[in-house]
Amino acid sequence: MGATDWIEIGRMDDLARLDTPMHRLDARAKIIVTLAFIGVVMSFPPHALSALTPFLFFPLVLIYGARIPMGPIVKKILLAMPFALAVGIFNPFLDRRPVLAIGPVTITGGWMSFTSILVRFLLTAGAALALVACTGMVRLASALGQLGVPRVFVVQLLFLHRYLFVVAQEGRNVLRSVTLRSSGTRSLNLGVYGSLTGNLLLRSMDRATRVYRAMMARGFDGEIRLVHPHQVRWIDGAFIAGWLAFFALGRTWNLAGGLGHWLTGVIP
């Protein structure tokens, strides 16, 4: 992750401000379904592959339904991938049992499970990102509070999210003043960067305290009040029930395998 991706947090919030059927769903419903989705995807045996593909419907429906551009989501998934990749890449070397032969090409269990890890990662990460992009931090935090997460933690999540922009803005100010004073010619040594970082920390701390005091002065009590408090509608219940039923179906039967088997049987 580079510094520019950090600013992209703001982009996720912009996306969350859109108004689509997916955005209008209750945030709690989306959280519950996303968690269930991740749980079900994780519960598949290590070598499952074709059985996982129907699960792509959920993140795709969220992403397309919420009119979220695919680019930023894919970029974030790729950036987050190295750890899963690093741990999974050993599977092909450790499990060399051949499990599938397509003509002369033999595919081993290790490659199957490695691909399975990547597919799982794509699914779970995609679903989590889609959830945020069509919900937004404030509604997400509010929903977490309603679902029983301690208020101190919910407030901490909100402050962290808010102060990311404070630190980013202060950082920009510090960098601008450095550029102005050095006329873009001098290269800075490590010591200067050290004191810059320290100053950035102090400036951010001061500004954060001022922001907090201003919030307290305006009556902030830790309660998140939304401008449009959400009314639970039947569609939220239908969203939960429908997806849970689909997950149960996809977990019990290999839908993709069945489809393929039927097709390869019908069309020789």
Binding site: L49, S50, A51, L52, T53, P54, L56, F57, L60, V99, L100, A101, I102, I107, N254, L255, A256, G257, G258, L259, G260, H261, L263, T264
Partner: peptide, 18 residues
């Protein structure tokens, strides 16, 4: 191989469908 190929075919189709 049969079920696996079916798996691949079905998987790819499901992806397209999704």
């Amino acid at each position: 191989a049969g079920t696996s190929v079916s798996g691949i075919v079905g998987g790819v189709l499901t992806l397209i469908l999704a």
